[in-house]
Simulated scan of single mutants.
Amino acid sequence: MSRPVDALLDYLRAEEAQGRESVYLDEEAKELLREFHRRAREKKTPVKKPAAAVAARMSSKEEPARTRVVEPVASISVSGDSAAEKIESLKQQAMNWAPAKALGTLRETMVFSTGNPEAELMLVGEAPGYQEERQQQPFVGPAGQKLDGILKAMGLDRGEVYISNIVKFRPSMPKQTTNNRKPTPEEMASCMSFVREEVRIVKPKCIVALGATAAEGLLGLTGAVGKMRGSWHEFEGIPTKVTYHPAYLLHGNAGLKDKRMIWEDMLAVMEKLELEISEKQRGFFLPK
C-alpha cells in the first residue's frame, strides 16, 4: 500500500526535476509537517491527508503559496493474493486515477504494463506512444521491436520480464495524431505511486530505466544518459541500471558503438541476474 508520505516525496521530486532547489511553506503547511512528525515519533498510525495536504500547500520561492495548487495524491489499495491479482488491482485503479486525470494533459486510454508479474527483471520506460495507446500495451511500436531484439539476445522474451512505464497515459498534444512528446515532471509524479507499488509486488532482482526520462522519473537524475549508465543506482531498494531508450537505435546515425554501449549495460544486467553469458554474447557488437 502506498504510504501517505509518498505524495509529498513525489511532489518534491517533480520540483527538483524542474531545477527548483527550495519550496515555500505557509504556516498551515508547517503545522501539518509538525503533526506528521509528532505522530511518527509517537509511533501512531499517521492520518492519510497530512503529506498530500503539505504538497498541496507548497510552492517554489518564486510563487506565492496560494497560487501553487497541487492535486493531493490519493492512496492506492492493493488487493489480491497472487502477484498477478495485485497488478490487476493496480490496473483497475489506474484507469480513473484522479491525480493524473486532474492534470488535463494526458489522454484517456490507460496503458499499464505487460509481462510476468513475478519477473526477476523489470524494464521501465517513460510513457505510452501512439502504437502503445492503440494496442494498450507498453513497447509495441518500432522501439518495442528493438527491445524484443535486445531481450532475445539476452536469451529472454517479453513474457519472462515485466515491462512498464512511469506515466500510464499518453501525453497529449494539440491536433495530435501519431506524434508523441515526453511527459512532464508533474505527469510523472502523478503516476509514481503506481510504479512504486509495481516494484513492491513484482520484487525484481534489478530494474532497467530505459532512457533519460525514465531515469528522471525513477531516480531524479537529469542530464545525459551517457553519464548515468556507468554505474548502478537504486530505486525502492532494487539495483537499477540506466541505459539508452531502444528508440535511440532507430536514429539514422546510430552505429555499432551505440549498440555496444546498450549491450554492455545489458551484460551488466545479466551478470546481476546471474544469467549464463556465452563468449558469443560477450562479443556482440565488438569491432571485428
Rank of each mutant, 00 (worst) to 15 (best):
A17P: 00
V242M: 10
K49Q: 10
S79E: 11
K49T: 07
A224V: 05
E274Y: 08
S59L: 02
I238P: 00
L12C: 04
Q145N: 09
L156Y: 06
K175H: 08
P174L: 13
K203R: 15
I163Y: 01
R196F: 02
L219V: 12
L286H: 09
F194E: 01
G129A: 08
A83D: 07
L275T: 01
M58F: 04
G144P: 00
P99Q: 14
T109F: 02
M58G: 03
S172P: 00
L9M: 12
V167I: 02
L106I: 08
F284K: 10
Y130W: 15
D148A: 13
D157C: 11
E71R: 14
A102Q: 05
G255H: 04
R68I: 02
R66F: 13
G149V: 01
A209M: 08
R282C: 10
E88Q: 10
L286E: 10
P99T: 11
E63A: 12
A56C: 02
E63C: 07
A40N: 03
M95K: 09
E88P: 00
V73P: 01
I201Q: 02
L8V: 13
K241F: 04
P287Y: 14
P50R: 07
L32Q: 04
K257Q: 06
P117K: 10
E21N: 15
P4K: 14
S60K: 12
N96Q: 09
R282Y: 11
L33H: 05
P185Q: 12
L210W: 08
Y162M: 06
